[in-house]
Design a protein around this nucleic acid. Structure first.
Length: 310
DNA sequence: TAGAGGAGCATCTTTACTTCA
DNA sequence: AATGAAGTAAAGATGCTCCTC
């Protein structure tokens, strides 16, 4: 299943305002990049519907899988996402029915997770999974979330990238999952988002490098031309001024032509003429022919594009 | 005020599962 | 139909920071 960058709709900034701490991984200056979702003018409540953070391709990919899982579960008479009451009761004190041995013994965090809290109660109440027979020490069954569960989690993720304990509990209860599963899902989801962001950032920086390389090449060429013209004074007189706008890095006056005559000199700069430095191009990020802002960044919020190339 | 411990998160890794050639 | 490679996602392990006591 092909999934190009154009299909992506990844959110660029991760601002977890609901948390005590704020995590921002937006590496791009806000003046260049407009984070997704777009500004209010184009953003409405349906934005995520029309620009799903994770295009349905992944869901489609898993559609058949979900169907198969559900079919198998039905055939087995057991929903893989539901733990029989007895099994759930037996699970108390164990962090996860799927845990490996190492996670069960002597682990401080496991102890922490095992604390008798409201959450733990919820875990016991909503735990699902497998029978003791299946839940052997050598077998860590991985239970795929159903399409519906994933959709709800995605919806929730659109609202907030982190969950407070209450939200986690509510979501777990609603989905019939353990709070730990919800927590893990959000962790993984954040990781995927960040990975996607990194990919896009990388792409963006590559473009910058390309633009700067081109610009450098162009300027070198211009310098060469100017040097050769300088060597032939007759030519020099007939020379048409270069089209490049230049700016004195010292006083930031815009200059045109080979004489670096400043134009648009601000009033406060009127005074004795000063020596202008080497001019520099105004556009450091290359020509506008390479749109990298909204068009590029506003469309990525999906799983990594590691999908198999068909 | 220093330090221990808990909580939450990021990150990396492992592993079960799926798809496809 | 069987199989192995590759991809995906759930879950485990670990380290870090912040906060509270």
């Amino acid at each position: 299943m092909m999934m190009g960058k154009e299909d992506l709709g990844l959110s660029l900034s991760l601002s977890f305002s609901a948390e005590k701490r704020t995590t921002t991984i937006n590496l791009i200056p806000s003046t260049i990049i407009s984070p997704s979702p777009p500004p209010s003018s184009s953003f409405n409540n349906n934005y995520w519907t029309t620009h799903p953070p994770f295009p349905h391709s992944t869901s489609d990919l898993n559609k058949e899988a979900c169907r198969l899982v559900e079919t198998r579960s039905f055939l087995k008479g057991i929903d893989v996402n539901r733990m029989p009451a007895t099994a759930a009761e037996e699970e108390g004190g164990v962090s996860s029915p799927n845990s490996t041995i190492s996670s069960l013994s002597g682990n401080k965090r496991s102890e922490r997770e095992g604390n008798c809290t409201e959450e733990n109660e919820m875990e016991r109440a909503s735990s699902r999974g497998i029978s003791d027979e299946e839940d052997g020490e050598t077998c860590r069954k991985k239970l795929r979330l159903t399409k519906e569960q994933s959709a709800v989690l995605e919806d929730s993720f659109k609202d907030h990238h982190t969950l407070n304990p209450k939200q986690k509990l509510a979501l777990a209860k609603r989905l019939g999952l353990r709070p730990r599963q919800v927590e893990v899902w959000f962790q993984n989801r954040r990781a995927r988002t960040k990975l996607k962001q990194t990919e896009v950032d990388c792409e963006f920086l590559k473009r910058c490098v390309e633009n700067l390389t081109d610009e450098n090449r162009r300027l070198q060429k211009e310098v060469q031309e100017l040097r050769s013209l300088k060597r032939s004074p007759q030519f020099y007189m007939q020379m048409t001024p270069p089209t490049t706008l230049t700016m004195c890095p010292s006083c930031e006056c815009v200059a045109t032509g080979p004489t670096n005559t400043p134009v648009n000199i601000p009033p406060h700069r009127v005074g004795p003429p000063h020596q202008h430095h080497q001019p520099m191009p105004l556009n450091m990020w290359g020509p506008p022919s390479t749109p990298i802002s909204q068009g590029h960044y506003g469309q990525m919020d999906t799983y990594p594009t590691l999908a198999r190339q068909k």
